[in-house]
Simulated assay, not measured.
Amino acid sequence: MIIAVRSLIFMLVFYSGSLLFVLWAIAFGWVTPLMVQRTATAWSRFHRGCVRWLLRQKVVVDGDLPQGPYLYIIKHESMFETIDMLCLFDRPAIGAKRELFDIPLWGGIARRYGLIPIERTAGASALRVLRAAARDRIAQGRAICLFPEGTRVPHGEAPPLKSGFAGLYSLLGLPVVPIAIDSGRVSPRGRFLKRPGTITYKVGEMIPVGLDRKEAEARVHAAINALNA
């Protein structure tokens, strides 16, 4: 019962507060993209606070998280990490499925912020567009964050990586920082109830540039699933 009450309060507080952040971004986002980025960062910190104080979920980073021109590849189990990336990095450029950019109001804010649209059926042309967008964000000094599984997966499952990772790894020529997360243990996909506990980010060993596709994918896959047990 306590978990249900906390989950309900979290939903009411977080989504009501999120509406205010969206309205603020719409009202003042036209001034400069930096205004949207700062608003998004404040929203992420608001979310982290709601998670900590309302759901009693603690966030821990296991390992040293390097900051720089890297390609960050993250496990995807919950909505939590899609928002929390803005607490880990400075104005990260996060890859998001193309359909999200068609959502009224939110899509315009996403473009203004500088999210990277990803076509799920990515052919060669789509990959070139993705590379151009990623290089533009890198030139701005921003981290590139991708969820290579393409969608949220239940905790403990380890589906194969989508093909876009290998293509982007080859085209960008950036070292990869793989990150595992176990958010699905306490905030499962599609579940209203969110349990108290610890959400852990586990930073894997950096993967250098120049590996062949199979080896790079194998090392990333193992690293982002390091918390599955």
Rank of each mutant, 00 (worst) to 15 (best):
101 F>K: 07
143 A>G: 08
106 W>Y: 15
118 I>N: 00
77 E>T: 07
135 R>N: 13
131 R>P: 03
91 R>E: 10
131 R>H: 11
136 D>M: 09
119 E>C: 09
118 I>W: 00
130 L>K: 01
123 G>S: 11
96 A>L: 15
110 A>G: 14
77 E>V: 10
66 P>I: 07
99 E>C: 12
85 M>P: 02
135 R>A: 05
136 D>I: 02
138 I>C: 07
102 D>Y: 13
98 R>V: 13
109 I>M: 10
100 L>T: 03
75 K>H: 10
88 L>E: 02
65 L>W: 06
96 A>N: 05
65 L>R: 05
83 I>P: 00
89 F>G: 03
79 M>G: 14
131 R>V: 15
85 M>I: 02
74 I>N: 06
144 I>R: 00
80 F>N: 05
109 I>Q: 01
128 R>N: 14
88 L>V: 03
90 D>H: 14
113 Y>M: 12
87 C>W: 00
142 R>F: 00
70 Y>S: 04
68 G>E: 07
108 G>D: 10
78 S>N: 12
117 P>K: 12
105 L>W: 11
118 I>Y: 00
84 D>Q: 12
83 I>T: 05
72 Y>K: 08
122 A>D: 01
75 K>P: 09
97 K>L: 07
72 Y>P: 01
83 I>R: 00
97 K>N: 11
97 K>I: 11
106 W>I: 15
92 P>A: 07
76 H>K: 11
127 L>C: 02
138 I>V: 13
102 D>R: 15
142 R>T: 00
65 L>P: 04
129 V>E: 13
75 K>C: 13
139 A>L: 03
93 A>M: 01
127 L>Y: 02
70 Y>H: 15
93 A>E: 01
135 R>Q: 14
79 M>T: 14
76 H>I: 09
76 H>T: 11
133 A>C: 08
116 I>S: 01
102 D>L: 12
110 A>H: 07
104 P>T: 11
110 A>R: 04
119 E>T: 09
103 I>C: 08
136 D>T: 08
135 R>M: 13
115 L>N: 06
106 W>A: 15
77 E>N: 12
82 T>Y: 03
69 P>F: 02
136 D>W: 01
137 R>W: 01
73 I>N: 02
65 L>K: 04
121 T>P: 00
120 R>A: 10
65 L>D: 05
139 A>T: 03
75 K>D: 06
110 A>N: 07
144 I>T: 03
108 G>M: 10
72 Y>I: 09
112 R>Y: 01
104 P>G: 11
117 P>G: 06
90 D>W: 04
68 G>W: 06
128 R>F: 04
123 G>H: 09
105 L>N: 04
110 A>V: 02
81 E>G: 07
127 L>N: 04
77 E>R: 12
138 I>T: 10
120 R>K: 11
115 L>I: 10
71 L>N: 06
115 L>G: 06
139 A>P: 06
118 I>R: 00
99 E>F: 12
131 R>C: 11
137 R>S: 02
108 G>I: 09
141 G>I: 06
138 I>P: 05
130 L>P: 03
86 L>H: 13
68 G>L: 08
133 A>S: 12
69 P>N: 10
111 R>G: 07
71 L>D: 05
